[in-house]
Amino acid sequence: MLKVNNINMSYGDLQVLWDVTFEVRKGEIVVLVGANGAGKSSILKTISGLQNVSKGTITFEGENVSNINPSEIIKHGIVHVPEGRKLFNEMTVEENLIMGALHGEAKEKRNETIEECYLLFPRLEERKKQLTGTLSGGEQQMVAVARGLMSKPKILMLDEPSLGLAPVLVQDIFNIIKSINKQGITVLLVEQNVQSTLTFCDRAYVLENGKIVLEGTGQELLNNEHVKTAFLGI
């Protein structure tokens, strides 16, 4: 579904991605794991066009989307839920959700999708008139995920949804991601929370210094010696 072929990407003179190749198949949950600065978020930014590739191609459903204008990417069904949530904090929860559905089919079905999101996150319905800046971290993350769902994505790219959340909330968010995936939405997840994500993902790629060094199913990687020493501390 999403194929990333040999991409290089640089911030100015600083190259951060080196020959990165991976793919996400329809219906999967794929995780990119790696330490801080390994290039995980940069990969998502490159897919969504916020950064340009200097080499290589990105294709989605057979269509070349490399170096696409970032405001166009959502129309292809690729939705990026950025790191740090990036909500519109001076807008209400409901307005934030509306912002996810500005185009095409998503816009027509806006009201239905809002109801679906409220079923998935009952907490958000209670707080729909509240400014998102006044919500707790967990609630903000729910808004960010829900806003992503509002665009009726084919693939949802989540950048560290567990960042800054209490462990019990982290588990909630992961459960929600699993249930979203069950509804047929493909998920590409970037996480530092290696242990728990590897247990529920279909496949994972390990990044180090802007290169993919390992790939496999979650279970394979959990048993991998390198992953054990580098990420799990066992």
């Binding site: 405001s71 129309k75 939705v79 990026h80 807008m91 912002m99």
Partner: peptide, 23 residues
């Protein structure tokens, strides 16, 4: 939607772009 897009762009340009708003 236009007004909301204006406010969204003022609050967070990158996030607005990811929502498909041409900044």
């Amino acid at each position: 939607d236009l007004g909301r897009s204006i406010r969204a762009t003022a609050q967070d340009k990158d996030a607005a772009t990811l929502m498909g708003i041409s900044s």
